[in-house]
Computed example of a mutant assay.
Amino acid sequence: MKDNVVLEVSHLKKYFDLGHGRTLHAVDDVSFSIREGETLGLVGESGCGKTTCGRTCLGMYNKTDGQVLYRGKDVHALKGSELFAYKREAQMVFQDPYASLDPRMTVSDIIAEGMDVHHLYQNKAERAEKIYGLLEKVGLNKEHANRFIHEFSGGQRQRIGIARALAMEPKFLVMDEPISALDVSIQAQVINMLIRLQKEMGLTYLFVAHDLSMVKHISDRVAVMYLGQIVEITRSEELYSHPLHPYTQALLSAIPIPDPIIEAERETKRIHLEGEVTSPINPAPGCRFASRCPYATARCKEATPTLKEVGTGHEVACFRVTGE
């Protein structure tokens, strides 16, 4: 395993057959790596393939092509005890805390569901002790253990979902837009909690989101995804201070600023994308962003740019930026 890389994704593809000769290219030749203890933010508009990418990395979806290596082992080739161990060590926190938690189960049973399957306790007393400890870790208390989900707010439900994932004693977590369904006032609390838990438990995150303002606070590096492909990836501070891909620039220009005077002054600098979004169903050759890009040339519509390093750790898939 090189440079403490926990997850290495190489040329990953995930297509869905829609019938009648139509194929949805949800994830189309994606490559990235995540080091131990790092958070990689995966951002982009809804429908760009972020969630599908995360689920394919966990083995929840079979890949179409490419490779996902977890600590050097091919995720999609794991069997038996190795697969069982991976399912414990790599967990997912789902986007919707209302849909992902069973309303017929108590909080205690929800959190302990995976612990029961993997036999992570010796007796009922240890099971209860672990549940209470996990509730405390996520900012709840043991009195919540015997309640049902309908008694909790959205923020509390998401904390319970996080406790359920942590109960497996994981090392790698895919966070699938874990704050998008929450009130803005609660989002920062959950982000700060995730940062604290990462430090305390030595966790590695793939943080999927479309809200770039929140991603900035939790991510070490950020990958920007557009219609199944990564168009830019670099350190978080570099992306926000020096975005190079036209799509990244447009996304960042749309982040609201909580100051009406500054926001009004910046309105003239906001990049408004025009043109139709290219269909990910049987896409034609060329850059997927070409139909909306103000700098697109004839070449952009004929050839597909690949990620090229333009600075230390800063990769961009754009002919204009790379000078190709």
Rank of each mutant, 00 (worst) to 15 (best):
L273V: 02
F289W: 10
R288Y: 07
D259Q: 06
R159V: 04
A188C: 01
E169I: 00
V277I: 15
E169M: 08
T64I: 07
H217R: 01
G49A: 06
L173M: 15
L252C: 05
T304C: 09
G47T: 02
A99I: 11
I257P: 04
Y61Q: 12
V215C: 02
A85E: 15
P285W: 11
R164P: 01
R127P: 05
K63W: 10
D220E: 12
R35T: 11
H11M: 12
M214G: 02
L120R: 09
K87R: 15
I179V: 13
Y61M: 09
V208G: 05
I195P: 03
A163T: 07
A85N: 14
D74A: 12
P283A: 08
G202S: 08
E276P: 01
R266I: 07
H314A: 04
C287T: 07
R235M: 14
A303M: 08
I218N: 09
S33G: 10
T39E: 06
I261V: 14
A77W: 03
L194K: 01
V190W: 03
K79A: 08
A128F: 12
M214E: 08
M168I: 07
T297P: 01
K171C: 12
E143A: 13
E238T: 14
L101C: 07
H272D: 13
R35N: 14
L182C: 03
S153P: 02
R35Y: 05
C318D: 00
T23I: 15
I281F: 11
A209I: 06
Q198P: 01
I257C: 11
F16Q: 13
R35I: 11
E89R: 12
E89A: 11
P170M: 10
G154F: 05
F16D: 13
R270Y: 13
I255L: 00
F319M: 03
V75T: 03
V9E: 07
T52R: 06
C48S: 14
L212Q: 06
G41C: 03
C300K: 04
C300Y: 01
A125V: 14
M1Q: 13
M201T: 12
E38I: 11
G133M: 09
N282G: 10
I281T: 11
H118R: 12
A167E: 04
L58D: 07
S241R: 12
S180G: 01
E126N: 11
H245I: 02
P256N: 03
E324T: 04
Y295N: 15
G41Q: 02
